[in-house]
Amino acid sequence: MLRIENLHVSVEGKPILKGIDLNVKAGEVHAIMGPNGSGKSTLAHVLAGRPGYEVTAGRVWYQGKDLLAMAPEERAREGLFLAFQYPVEIPGVSNIYLLKAALNAIRKHHGLNELDAMDFLATVKDKTRLLDMDEQFLYRAVNEGFSGGEKKRNEILQMAVLEPKLAILDETDSGLDIDALKIVAQGINALRSEKRAFILVTHYQRLLNYIKPDRVHVLAHGSIAKSGDAGLALELEKQGYGWVEQLADAGA
């Protein structure tokens, strides 16, 4: 589904990612962990096509296509979804309107008709129940006046409605209390399928208590210092990031 080859990325001339290789297959859940400043969020943003990042070397293949050549909205329409670490507010635009506009943009891209209003509403209401969200959420302006936890849940709601092929979750667990974390994890688990892949970007191991990853990669100083199975996350929890940073330094 996604193949990253030797990806180098700079921001304002400063190298942040220094040669990332990653292969994500449909149905897999990969966790990207690492200390602050290791380049986790940069990786998530570059994959989604955020402006301001310069790819200095490397290729990214998504479903056989050159991802980096695609516009951000094209990536989204092809099924790449980014759950933001800091979701923005859009005053005056209701959640349900955004969801409908987004879903229809994606459907149109695939040559499908716009969804009938009644069907759409029914689908969306189902998803709000899945995430234990009040229906009133749908009619509030996008993230305006939402608590941190509500914003994160709203991201997952959007993911549930848009049903992406590859979902990248950028520190979705940060700022969540344990109950909210469980609900979010439950929402993500409900979406796991053989056709869908996830990349969970996280600082902490605790999200992985609820979502069991197939692979765990530890990022340090802009490259993957170590990869392993779910056990690696537990080891990190015990030993801390200092351990992998040393590995990375030794490798460099």
Binding site: L82, A101, A102, A105, I106, Q158
Partner: peptide, 13 residues
């Protein structure tokens, strides 16, 4: 820019 990117990431032009 954040608002625009957010909307584009959801598939909007």
């Amino acid at each position: 820019e954040d608002q625009l990117f957010f909307c584009q990431q959801r598939g909007l032009s």
